[in-house]
Amino acid sequence: MSKFQFPKAIFSRPVYTVLERRVGSHHLMVADAEGGGALLDLAKSDSGLMADAHVIYIPKHTGDTYSKPLAAFAPGQFYIGSSYEASVARLRRTLLGAHMGLQVYLAGTEGLMGQVQSEAAQAGISPESIQSEHRGSVARRMQCVHCKGITEDVTVDPFVCGHCGLNLYVRDHYSRRLAAFQGVCVNAEDPGNVPKAKELYT
């Protein structure tokens, strides 16, 4: 599944678009896994763009499927990260030295795009300067409202908090600051009874 049509949801949930070139002094692109495909589509639509771009790409399970063709576009700066955690220091350093007029392009999973968006907002970038295109996994990054722990890559509802072990149901309510959806105890009023877990979006 590389492109996914999210069902209509509440207002706090992010909405994803298709990346397009924006006018700007610099272009920062961050993508993970199948998100590399969205950057490729963008590069194909406007080959001049990549020469001015700084690309941070985290291939995850996709090997060199996307990294090789991306490299072929010869981005101004091209970095392949082994994980988001490994890339975040570089991301912060880049934002620290950036100027007004910077355009940010995000592609891939909600967790990756949300976390970069949150870093960018802290650096003073307004949401309007950030575009996001979803590709790949529809897994969610969840905050447990009880213990505050973040559980990555949640694909079922309810799920078990990776920190406190409570059974949580998955809400659509989304915090851009935390880059996470909210998980709330599913059986507080009926302790013995945890509903059977279902795949998200089924």
Partner: peptide
């Protein structure tokens, strides 16, 4: 400012 890529929120 718009041509230089400034967002309208700024």
């Amino acid at each position: 400012a718009k041509k230089a890529g400034w967002p309208h929120e700024a």
